[in-house]
Structures are given as structure tokens and as C-alpha cells.
Design a protein around this nucleic acid. Sequence first.
DNA 1: CTTGACCCTGTAGTTACTACAGGGATTACT
DNA 2: AGTAATCCCTGTAGTAACTACAGGGTCAAG
Lengths: 137, 137
Amino acid sequence: MNTKKREYSRGALAKAASVNIETVRFYEQKGLMPNPPRTTAGYRRYSQAHLERLIFIKRAKELGFQLEETGKLLSMIDGEIDCSTVQDIALANIELINAKIADLTQIRDSLKETASKCTGEHTPECALIERLLTPVV
Amino acid sequence: MNTKKREYSRGALAKAASVNIETVRFYEQKGLMPNPPRTTAGYRRYSQAHLERLIFIKRAKELGFQLEETGKLLSMIDGEIDCSTVQDIALANIELINAKIADLTQIRDSLKETASKCTGEHTPECALIERLLTPVV
DNA sequence: CTTGACCCTGTAGTTACTACAGGGATTACT
DNA sequence: AGTAATCCCTGTAGTAACTACAGGGTCAAG
């Protein structure tokens, strides 16, 4: 059995996790990724555990978590996981996304209604412009 | 009839349009608002037309237009309005918002499904963390 | 050895704002 | 007139989440 520990450079790590190479440094600066051991030349050396952590961050992002929330989840993994707290974070995030969806839906509907009044012809008369230009009181 | 031209300072303009005072400078830097005449002390003096332009920008933002698109609409007002082009911009914007809504909806649903598997108890066992930690191939 | 790709750190750009600092100007009140 | 509070000016920098570039050192393959 091959028990040799796999090591990654920053570029190899980024590629393995399918993130931008600069994003690795960015997450390090933000404290999500640790500052890893270095070669004598100063090159970062990452382990398999680092890769798994980076993939965790990527998945959290895909689930709509902000980096701050992701950081909280990581703190729990580093320390003690409390499923109740995790669920709180997740539910708050769901509410946040719901609010964004509601916002965008309202905007989309409003714009759609206005745009439907455009004749769509090459004329200076335009319902959308009129709407934006409605005189103020 | 009172025909005196109303003039605004930057702060008064921002207040009249219900935008942040610094936003006025920001829009000026971005080219959406003109660099207005000044007093001898260097204070900006805005007219009613400036106010109407700022409100136009605000309304465009409320309809989900990005500043670049708003700039295009303003260029038309300054020059020639072509309703066909306006409608193109609006329809593209509607598509953009639709895509955002679809994105967020997928994220929300995915997160909801995972969070529903959390027991919500003060335990180290947590379905969401497990999902983020699923081993990589 | 050479070359190309990689790494390092630092800096700055994207979008749409928003806030702060230092210093001058204005306004209202005494 | 003096004073204090508020406003304005320009410039700078911060927010979130990245991403790109520069100059210079390092590594690996031919």
C-alpha cells in the first residue's frame, strides 16, 4: 500500500479543488485556510487535509454561504461541532437567499411590466424612459 | 408665478433624491452625473434638471439596471432616444435577473434539503457538515 | 546551460457604493 | 463681530469576493 503523503503546491492545490490559484491566497488572508509549511525557497506545501478543507470552503460557497459563515463552520470543525448552531447558520442563510429572490422577483416583474409597454420601434417615444423620467412633485 | 431657479448643494441634492451624499460624487466620477458649475468657494451648484437626472438614475437602479446600462439610457436622453434599443437593454436585463433568480432558487433548495437533515440538536453529528466534508475521490 | 512554467510578495482592479480625514466655507445665533 | 455647528471640498480607503498583474526568484525538463 502506498502510504506516501501527497503534497501540493499552491497551483496544484487550486487545480485539484477547481478554484483560482489566487483564491487560495485570498482565503489564507481571510483566515479560512492556514498558512502552510514552506520549502526553503518559500514555496507553500499543502497536504491532503488542506485540499479537503479547500473543497469544504468551495462547497459551502456553492450552498450560498458567505465567507464569514463558512469561517464559523470551519471553526466548529477545528473545535466542536454543534449541529444546532450549524442549523441556525443554515436557516439564516436560507432566509437571506429567500429575501434576495423576493427582491429580484419584484424587480423583474416591475421591469417586465414597463418593458412590455415599449413599442420596440425605432422611435423617440418610449414607455420605459417615460417611467424613469416621470416628473417629481 | 415664482420662476426663480432652484439651486441645490450636493447635500441638498442628495437629500431631495433620497440618495447618499457621497453617491452623488460617485455617479459624477462614473460619468452618470455632470460636473456642475461651482461657487467661488468651489461648492457644487446643482439645478432642478440635475435633480431630475439623479432621480432617473435612482429609478433605473430600482429597476435592476447596472450603472453601465443606466449610462446608456442617459446617453440616449442626451442625444436620441431609440425605443428599440431601450427595449433591448431592458429585455437583456430581465434575462439577467431571471438567471440570478434561478441560481439563487437552486442554491436555496439545495441548502434547504441539506439543512432539513440536521437534527438541530447539540450533537457533533451534523448532516450539513457531512455533506461539505464528503471525501474527495 | 537554457527555457518555460511555477512560485513568491505586493499591489490594484472589478461593482456599487459608503465612510472618514483634514481643512476651508457657510449659516444661524448670541 | 464672534462663535459654534454644520456644510462643503478633495483625497483616500473600506466593504464582499474575488481576480489579475508585476518584478524577481525557483524548479523541472530538454
